[in-house]
């Protein structure tokens, strides 16, 4: 009996390996090996047609001397700093307000409506906003014209183009985080809200002392997700501004793409990709540390 059990267990383990195998092969081939290769390529000179040639740290030296890299790095950081707090705060306020004051049908309708931009592709979103933001005849300038504001060159002015990238991102993201926050608010024990009400707490006090602390784990998650997805911004930049005017909206991810597939500098682009990876890993590490301390 015991022996049979053992072979049965071995057989089960064998089945288990068979079940895991396809996904293991996919992740190994298309994720793990590419990561290792990306790190290797970052130390080589490689133009896709002749074989990769090892050149040590030259790509990294080149990257750290390039002013375009610093623009891209600075833009990416600036973009994270602008989009993440704004979209998180908006999502939080809307979720709390709908959960608190609009439990009816109208609230449900608003919730569904605010989620809609989430399912629009970045490319379609950028295409629509690009038409709306046109200097001559764009609907936004037409609208502003009603108030006597002259034609604004949204995508042709450095600071404004950057702002537009942020706005489209926020427009697309709020609904997603709002849905997560909403589920979180609904999960707060009713007794806590009622106790606060009994103590005569004002709505603002209840928000700061009951709602916000209860949502802290969700906020960590949302902020981390937001930072990481903002770090990788590519589509909206590609479609809306192409990195311009000048280098005012170029980002790290956009730089990886253009250096690899327009300039054929695969080694150099890999070095930027590895730097991007280090940033993302650092954020995960930080978030992990903060989480454990709480």
């Amino acid at each position: 009996m015991k022996k049979r059990g053992l072979t049965g267990r071995k057989q089960q383990a064998f089945y288990g390996i068979l079940y895991i195998l396809p996904s293991f092969v996919i992740i190994l081939m298309f994720s793990i090996i590419p990561i290792i290769l990306a790190i290797y390529f970052s130390f080589t000179k490689y133009d896709m047609y002749s074989p990769a040639e090892f050149i040590g740290l030259q790509n990294y030296e080149g990257v750290f001397k390039s002013s375009t890299f610093y623009s891209a790095l600075w833009n990416t950081l600036k973009y994270v700093i602008v989009t993440v707090p704004v979209q998180t705060l908006l999502a939080l306020l809307i979720a709390v307000f709908i959960a608190d004051k609009m439990r009816g049908l109208y609230g449900a309708l608003l919730k569904s409506t605010i989620f809609i931009p989430v399912i629009v592709s970045n490319i379609a979103a950028a295409a629509v906003w690009k038409v709306m933001l046109k200097t001559r005849g764009g609907i936004i300038n037409n609208f502003l014209g009603l108030f006597g504001i002259g034609e604004v060159n949204w995508l042709g002015t450095k600071a404004l183009a950057f702002l537009c990238i942020c706005l489209v991102t926020i427009w697309k993201n709020v609904g997603y985080y709002m849905v997560i926050y909403y589920a979180g608010v609904m999960g707060i024990p009713k007794e806590q809200q009622e106790a606060a009400l009994m103590d005569g707490a004002s709505p603002a006090q209840r928000f700061w002392h009951v709602t916000v602390p209860n949502l802290r784990p969700i906020t960590y998650m949302i902020v981390t997700l937001g930072i990481i997805s903002s770090f990788q911004i590519f589509d909206i930049v590609y479609q809306l501004t192409g990195g311009g005017p000048g280098t005012s909206t170029i980002t790290l991810a956009y730089m990886v793409y253009t250096y690899a597939f327009s300039n054929q500098k695969l080694g150099y682009a890999s070095a930027i990709a590895v730097i991007l990876l280090l940033f993302v890993l650092a954020i995960h590490w930080l978030q992990d540390k903060v989480f454990k301390e709480r």
């Binding site: 298309f30 994720s31 590419p34 290769l37 990306a38 990886v256 990709a273 993302v280």
Partner: peptide, 12 residues
Amino acid sequence: TMMVPSQVTLIP
């Protein structure tokens, strides 16, 4: 592997 940005694996 979920933490790795898609641009990192793009070239390989």
